[in-house]
Design a protein around this nucleic acid. Structure first.
Lengths: 220, 220
DNA sequence: AAGCACTGTTACCGATCGGTAACAAAATTG
DNA sequence: CAATTTTGTTACCGATCGGTAACAGTGCTT
């Protein structure tokens, strides 16, 4: 649980059989195992927590053998980093989708992101922000996953600052700070407050009030 | 890790020896072990995480024998609840101290709480909100610790609503929601953003802006 | 056909998890 | 004093942790 290597040991046999003779059993099974493992950890680590889920649970869920896992990935730490990269892709997809709903309207874009977060938070199986969860599950700030989390948050802050500037905020950095804290708070509140608490539904209103206060009444 | 019992198995021998004859070795050692265990978990669970710390680490830190622990406490779950109650006392102490700095001035009281949170967050060994951490470490919302956490947050929300009302907010519930989200965000940001990030120092400003926007310019 | 690279499977490693049985010494009780 | 309760200690329980050695089967390449 310490060494790190984001890349797999081998690119795995990707070549197909010569023609389409009946595929017997084995070839390029490694790549298949890899995708099934990635799918398994994406779900298990998120839903049950990275610490709570052992590799035995992963291989069972993925339907592969433990050795098949360790031939594709260096260690559980490597699994964690793969999990993080996939979750990161998903996050920026969400972020981009929210913004795409209001092209050229930064204020509406910011608001929409909170609307969408609040909406996802109501869905069953929602477990908050995977980065937040990992950061808290691994208290040692020197752990490799913590760096990835911090990088993600830095990138988020940069995007927020850009949006706040475009939105015409009087103090863009102040608004970006407020948005950032609100986002972390929204994620966490979904886990600390009782399920279905009214606070979650109120997230978009709090955000839009903050934006309005920072930019002025009329949409610039 | 499932059954719960907040009370100890036995109140433990609290009676002293007849006079003050030389205390040989054993009597009322149980109570002493109890306090040392409570001190140990208060530190270990917070700093390293409740899941990561095993009972062996607890007894080692407490300087007691494992059987001494299990004669005082039912299970590790019981330890968790004791840990929570102590942390809860501490939290409300902090909360009360912040408010006591500005008696009768709810706006300043609210601001002060954020100032003090941000100050504590800079201290070494700060690991965020113990309730947040426990909620995330135990994904199962049916786990006993989750109820305690939810209760704590409900109580916090009630206090915030009272303060927001006293502060003369136009929409007290809206301000209380904002404060609640900001608090969760502040706690979490200390763990997700890189150590010493400027965002943490900016917490009080964000809070005071929000309060000002909700109450109006002049201190009512 | 031979050699090689990779596969799946089993069985295992030492360490740690939460928790306990059992016993001897000590202190309290009568 | 004798009897009982509480103490400290050791050794252990089955389960799970992350990780691996070893081997037989399979397909590809030459």
């Amino acid at each position: 649980m310490s060494a790190v290597n984001i890349v797999e040991k081998k690119p795995a046999a990707m070549r197909r059989k010569r023609a389409d003779k009946p595929v017997r059993k084995a070839v390029m099974y490694g790549a298949e195992a890899q995708t099934q493992i990635l799918d398994a950890i994406d779900e298990l680590f998120y839903l049950e927590g990275a610490r709570a889920v052992g590799v035995d649970a992963v291989v069972k869920r993925a339907g592969v053998n433990k050795m098949s896992l360790y031939r594709q990935f260096e260690s559980k730490d490597a699994l964690l980093l793969h999990y993080l990269t996939r979750r990161q892709e998903r996050f920026w997809n969400y972020f981009g989708e929210s913004l795409a709903k209001h092209p050229g309207k930064p204020r509406e874009q910011l608001c929409q992101f909170f609307i969408d977060v609040a909406e996802r938070a109501q869905r069953t199986g929602y477990r908050g922000c995977p980065f937040v969860n990992l950061a808290i599950e691994f208290p040692d700030s020197a752990h490799p996953v913590r760096r990835v989390v911090a990088d993600n948050k830095d990138e988020l802050m940069a995007r927020l600052l850009a949006l706040a500037t475009q939105a015409g905020a009087r103090d863009p950095q102040a608004l970006a700070n407020g948005m950032a804290l609100l986002i972390e708070g929204a994620y966490t509140a979904t886990q600390t407050y009782a399920p279905g608490h009214a606070l979650i539904a109120a997230i978009p209103q709090v955000a839009s009030s903050m934006i309005e206060a920072a930019c002025g009444k009329s949409p610039a």
